[in-house]
Every structure is written in C-alpha cells, then in structure tokens.
Amino acid sequence: MTNGTQWRSWLDNDKWFSELPGSLQDSLLTVMRQRRVTPGKRVFEYGKPACGLYALLDGSIRFNDLKSQQQWQPQPTQVRPYWFGEVSLFDEQPRLRDAYAEGQVILLHLPQAPLQALLRDHPHYWRWFGQLLGRKLGLMVPPPDELRLMPTKERVAFRLLMLAEGYGDMDRSTRVVPVHDILSRRRLGLLPEVVERVIAEFAERGILRGEHDAIHILDTDRLRKAALHRLTPLIA
C-alpha cells in the first residue's frame, strides 16, 4: 500500500477532507508528508515563518501561552484527524504559538510553499480552506483579498477572533493576542490609531481587556457577534 493510498484510507471518514473535490484531495495527498514527533519536541516554533497545514493523526499537541510559557495541559480527546495551522494561509504571519508534542505524535504535514502554489493555480480552492478555519471561528472566512471590504469594527473583531481562535479546540488555554499583531496595517489596512479606538470600545463593552503589549479576549461569543458581516455569516 503506498503512502497516498494509506493516507486516503485514514482521511476518508474526515468530514472536511471527504467533502473536498477529488482533484483537491489528490493534490493534497501528493504533497503531504508523514511526520513523527517525540514527546516534548516542537512541531513548530513561535516567531518562525508559516510552515503549512497539519493533520494530527495520533497523540496530542500543546500550545504555549505567548506571554507566560504555561505548564503542559492534557488536551481533550479529539476526532482524528484534527487539522491545524491553516490560519497561516490567510494571514501569512509568523507562527504565534510554540506547538509541542505531548506524548508520541503522528502528523501529516502539507508544506506552505506547495499549498500556496496550489491556491495560486486554483484560486477557487480558497473556499475549502476557509471552511476549515471557519468551523473553528464559527464564522465564514472570506478570501484574504476580501477582508478589507468589511467595515472597520467588524474587520478588527474578525482579526482578533482569527488570532484568538485559529487553533480551535486544541488551544483553549490562552486568549492572549499581542498588540503588534492586531495593529499591523498590512493585515487590516487600517491606521493604528483607528484600530486602537475600536479596541478601546470593545474594552468598554467588556469583550476584551487591553494591556500595554497584549489584548486579553474575555468574551469570544460577543467578539464573534461583533465580527458579523455579509462576508462572515455565522456557521451553524
């Protein structure tokens, strides 16, 4: 049995993968690489360039807090495979977490470069990766070039939600977003002072708490509602 055939047998029961067009399934199977990570070793490192999409087949991943390297915490049992890392396809930012193997971990890794090439050649595939991320955010995810079409407050709320919820159920221990990540004009197309005004309003509403260098998300449900727009309807 070839690796591609074996992986397809593992992925056949995965809701996201099984709904993909056959051509996209074949393309992903072609570029995926199996990776085994021993306990305590990094899967990826904070601050390093985006490195693609991962499917967790066995074991558990622990994500460190950005500000205060948290202790290892057991992860809830997840349906396998569990996909993570797709947020980097949308923001092209360095990794915002350290990701460590808790116990022996088996992953399928889809490197960033071939994924980006695939999306350049087949831009209609964006919607499928948007669906993958959208299930974690609870909102539909527009293609990156449409984000700037959203009104200011919704745009800021969506960016905060993406930064805080991008790893879904795998990362419920921290809701801390570095200020410099939300103030990035390249990401939002907004002046820093405009973003700061929106953040101050969200703080007054009890959605978040701002500090000098970090934003603490206090209420993700209200943040999700603040991000609602015609481009980002709720996902049932």
Rank of each mutant, 00 (worst) to 15 (best):
E146I: 02
D145W: 00
L66F: 14
P144E: 14
D145S: 04
Q71G: 08
V105R: 00
P76N: 01
R120V: 15
Q73M: 09
H122F: 12
L89C: 04
Q75S: 13
S68F: 08
Q131I: 02
R95Y: 07
G138V: 13
Q71K: 07
H109T: 06
S88E: 15
P94C: 02
L110R: 02
A99D: 12
T77E: 13
T152G: 00
L96A: 13
P94K: 01
H109D: 12
L139F: 05
T77G: 07
R95M: 07
L119C: 11
L115D: 11
A113C: 06
K67Q: 08
L66N: 04
V79Q: 10
Y100P: 04
D91P: 05
P142R: 00
L137A: 02
L89F: 09
P74H: 05
L132A: 12
P74R: 07
L119E: 13
L137I: 09
V79Y: 06
L108C: 09
P111H: 00
R95G: 10
Y100F: 15
Q78W: 09
M140G: 08
D145N: 13
F129Q: 00
L119I: 10
W72D: 15
F84E: 03
L149K: 12
G134Q: 02
P142K: 01
R95N: 13
G103W: 12
V141T: 14
E154H: 01
Y82V: 10
D145G: 03
Q112F: 15
D98K: 03
P151E: 01
P151N: 01
L108F: 09
H122W: 11
W72K: 09
D98E: 15
L107C: 12
V87W: 06
P74G: 02
R148S: 14
R135E: 04
S68W: 06
